[in-house]
Design a protein around this nucleic acid. Sequence first.
DNA 1: GTTGACCTTGACCTTAGGTCAGGGCCCACG
DNA 2: CGTGGGCCCTGACCTAAGGTCAAGGTCAAC
Lengths: 261, 261
Amino acid sequence: MTGGLTIGQAAAFAGVTIKTVRHYHRLGLVAEPERDGSGYRRYRSADLLRLVQARTLAGAGVPLAEIGDLLDADPVRFTAALDDVDRRLTERIEDLIARRDTLRRLDQGDRALLPDRACALLDRLTALGFAADYVDTQREAMVLTRALIPEILDSFLSRLEDWLGDPEFVELTKQGWDAKSWDPEDPRIEELAAAMAGRLLADPARLAMPAEVRRRPDADARYGVIDHHGEDREPSLARLNTLIEAHLRAAGVDVPRPPHQ
Amino acid sequence: MTGGLTIGQAAAFAGVTIKTVRHYHRLGLVAEPERDGSGYRRYRSADLLRLVQARTLAGAGVPLAEIGDLLDADPVRFTAALDDVDRRLTERIEDLIARRDTLRRLDQGDRALLPDRACALLDRLTALGFAADYVDTQREAMVLTRALIPEILDSFLSRLEDWLGDPEFVELTKQGWDAKSWDPEDPRIEELAAAMAGRLLADPARLAMPAEVRRRPDADARYGVIDHHGEDREPSLARLNTLIEAHLRAAGVDVPRPPHQ
DNA sequence: GTTGACCTTGACCTTAGGTCAGGGCCCACG
DNA sequence: CGTGGGCCCTGACCTAAGGTCAAGGTCAAC
């Protein structure tokens, strides 16, 4: 008569795995029971009780590191600790729900990561006959804007909507995209830049930089990344953009200039 | 002009830590950008875009191991994967809510781990004048019952309520608890056992073993642990219990006998 | 020319256990 | 009597998503 349950029985009765029981022993959360002649652990009802209590708390989400103290604590501390765990659990639940909401806002196929208004604009670009890769690049710019300076996404979209209402500017923009395949030194790039800058300057309100941007310390750097997105792959476009910016600056427009890196 | 953001800038712009960016590189979820002459990573807008996309998915709870594939996948797979993640997230949220509910049912100070009915019974024991350590032991037995054979907890409580309605049995039980301090060979133990067994046999319905127990393969072992809880600390009580069981068995009652251990 | 902020790599820490390896104990069957 | 299978022992390494520490290289500014 060795007396007591083996670890396998104790674990099964308490509804945990053997490994979990040993884990609890190592963390000191449940004391090791006595061993029999073979070195096997032998569990008596008091050990099983402690194991059940520990499992119950662990199952409720109490961190294992706290359970030992908790089970030895007086009722007042016990209750306070349970309240604390409840608070943390609630926090975690709300966090996960927020994550799920984010996720659900992303379920629009390749239009993920953007609000509806932006998606509508992208559709309108396609309808207006812009090339698919141009639309892709615009989408990427929107994703970057939303991530880097979310507070100006709305004015970014408004400006784009505004521009799309100007057929001449739309035409110039399409030509500008064609410049991808031109030589960066092609003189037509300068012509295009002048024409586009002129069109932009026709209504300077369209160029107003939202005041919110200025409140971010590194706003220029962030804006620069968005503004020049894609250019590192297309030197002609980089040149076109540089020339347009030069025109605008010459006309007194405050174009953010990325800090020298 | 080295070109591109440093890792610190890229991390700040994307809203993650430097360590996280490097982690994503090591997992292959975001490709390493080119290095400058000093070996520093230099991030361009396309790299930043990828980083932002990865962060967004990770923030929504998508496992990092899946994000790389996901960002390279076609829209159909992308949507399907998002649905899958949503499902897992919902599951996890429900699990946590269930845990919190468990936790809230445990907020009764030292009466934790038991339903209201059991707590009321424990209060009644105290009111009837049972010793505090007897009540403690009963509470422990209830916790064990709830954990090991929850389906009989109700009949366990009913039987106890029934017994408490019998003043003579209450008196005998108090005497039985006093037996703790007696010598295990004290002849009064045998007398007590006979008296208690007689009282129990006065109404055999009180002893009926709930049929549910029999459906568990190791029900006898589980029942034995509960029935003999505390006895390993009190040899006199062990003897008292053994004698009572012998009386009951002699009278034809089916008392579970733990398998030889 | 030196300080302090930034970058590099690598190794170890976290939760709550799971898995594997190598070996001991015990019971039952042949 | 011995052997197979099931249980037990310990210890080392693995997970997810990074955090922290250490030791050293780079850069811009004072």
